[in-house]
Simulated scan of single mutants.
Amino acid sequence: MSFYTSLSGLKGAQTELSTISNNIANAGSIGFKRSRAIFGDLFAASPTQSTKTIAGQGVRLNGITQQFLGGTLEQTGKTLDLAIAGDGFFVVRGQPPREELSFTRNGAFNINVNREVIDTLGSKVQLLPVDAAGMVTSTAIADMIDFTLPEFDPLDPTAVLANVSINNFGLVTATFANGNTQNVGSIAMSSFTNVEGLRPIGDAHWQATGDSGNPQINAAATGSLGQVRSGMVERSNVDLTEELVSLIGAQRNFQANAQAIETANTLTQTIINLQV
């Protein structure tokens, strides 16, 4: 039995090493959230047995959870680079035909040939509709619109787009060559009842699940949602010093379990070699 107990420890240590290695590898990834492996002990006994005479049976993986603490904000100077100072996620919609919603903290956005603002996966950034005064008129998912930069002033087709600005509340304002301005929309943001229930799909993107609950859409700085910082991106929340210390602990744990297997093997071999 000691073989299987130590084997479960080896597998647990290997999982922890893999988790820590992934954190270290993504220390420079924009919007990345570190993960932590959570373990529990294995114990089994029949109702008629005394638990005082039974040892545990090893360890099992309860789950790998991501830690959604905010990372450091880094200045880039690019208007469409966005970061969130606080909680929440940007809402992006995939390209046709599926057009699935996903949620990200990676605000390194760019423009495609259709003048759509997209993320690193090519998904389109979503905006909430606003009125002429810049007030959000709807927070329904069905009413969200793609973030598309206007090419000309709607009131003057000869006036081209000169500048785009995004304030801390996520309001996107376009300024044209003739001095006119237009409120394009407000950056759509989302929160969840249980963020640890989100399903990671890579590149600091997540999808909603039954465990996370439905997305709660709103404008920036509303409720628990943080403010938007234009010209910045959020670095990963990985602390390399902490990860390296954890790496040493996981390595020692692996070595100890391997030594326990070696000891059990030696004892078994000794018993086998006993002669009457």
Results as ranks from 00 to 15, higher is better:
201 I>V: 14
179 G>V: 08
123 S>D: 14
128 L>A: 02
91 V>C: 07
2 S>V: 00
143 D>E: 15
20 I>E: 02
57 Q>E: 15
157 P>F: 10
256 A>P: 10
257 N>P: 07
225 L>H: 05
86 G>F: 03
102 S>M: 05
107 G>N: 05
200 P>M: 04
55 A>F: 07
64 I>G: 05
37 A>D: 09
223 G>E: 09
131 D>W: 09
179 G>C: 13
272 I>P: 01
4 Y>M: 13
201 I>R: 08
93 R>I: 04
148 T>P: 08
234 E>C: 10
205 H>F: 06
79 T>E: 13
30 I>D: 04
136 V>L: 09
160 V>R: 15
77 G>H: 10
52 K>A: 14
76 T>S: 11
244 L>V: 12
28 G>Y: 07
14 Q>F: 03
127 L>H: 01
178 N>D: 15
54 I>A: 10
255 Q>G: 11
139 T>N: 13
139 T>C: 06
43 F>M: 12
151 E>F: 09
110 N>A: 14
170 G>N: 01
197 G>N: 01
90 F>Y: 07
105 R>M: 04
98 R>A: 15
168 N>Q: 14
269 Q>I: 05
270 T>F: 08
269 Q>W: 11
229 R>K: 14
131 D>M: 10
58 G>N: 05
239 D>C: 06
173 T>R: 10
162 A>W: 00
206 W>A: 04
177 A>F: 04
46 S>G: 14
172 V>G: 03
150 P>S: 03
23 N>K: 03
182 Q>S: 15
136 V>I: 11
60 R>P: 04
104 T>Y: 02
261 I>H: 08
150 P>K: 06
132 A>M: 13
102 S>R: 05
179 G>E: 14
241 T>I: 14
16 E>A: 06
66 Q>D: 09
276 V>R: 12
253 N>Y: 03
248 I>W: 06
96 P>G: 12
201 I>K: 05
21 S>G: 13
8 S>N: 11
44 A>D: 12
74 E>S: 14
29 S>I: 02
164 V>Q: 04
237 N>H: 01
137 T>W: 10
133 A>Q: 15
170 G>E: 08
236 S>C: 09
78 K>C: 13
60 R>N: 09
143 D>M: 09
210 G>H: 12
13 A>K: 02
16 E>R: 05
48 T>D: 15
238 V>A: 00
229 R>N: 08
139 T>L: 11
165 S>G: 13
272 I>L: 13
164 V>T: 07
31 G>P: 01
148 T>C: 12
195 V>C: 08
72 T>L: 03
7 L>F: 08
254 F>R: 05
51 T>H: 15
22 N>S: 14
